[in-house]
């Protein structure tokens, strides 16, 4: 049975104040990838958030999993660059801190190793 205009207006008046939650969407492209944040959407429930996430973010890209997280459940760091400040030089933690190895190996007529070579070697039959 079709609704009258008055009924339609009543429904609309009630529905206008319906508010959906914001969900942040994270997509995992493959087993070896982490979930990556792709954006947000409005949804009436977590189940709908997942359905809408597929429609909004996976019309082309492949994926194996989606997380939908209510925005109010996301805890973020403060908006303060000092929070990420580096108190001192951390090169000693990085490959770049050992750039002189290559030169020093030369004296012993051998080469420095790098992790990509090791991975390739281990994978080789």
């Amino acid at each position: 049975m079709a609704m009258t205009q008055v009924e339609k207006d009543q429904v609309y008046e009630r529905a206008r104040h319906t508010s959906y939650d914001v969900y942040e969407i994270f997509v995992q492209a493959s087993d070896l990838d982490p979930h990556v944040h792709v954006g947000s959407l409005l949804a009436p429930s977590p189940e709908w958030a997942l359905q809408l996430a597929r429609e909004n973010f996976l019309r082309r890209a492949d994926a194996i999993n989606i997380w939908a997280v209510r925005r109010s459940d996301v805890h973020a760091t403060p908006d303060d660059p000092d929070w990420f400040a580096r108190e001192f030089d951390r090169k000693y933690r990085d490959v770049s801190g050992y750039a002189d190895n290559a030169r020093r190996w030369k004296r012993f007529k051998a080469q420095a190793m790098n992790i990509d070579d090791v991975i390739a070697d281990v994978r080789k039959e």
Partner: peptide
């Protein structure tokens, strides 16, 4: 937007009921 508003409202109501 207006004629389908009841669907949007019903979806939220379904969640509350659940």
């Amino acid at each position: 937007h207006q004629d389908q508003a009841w669907v949007r409202e019903a979806l939220v109501r379904a969640r509350t009921a659940a």
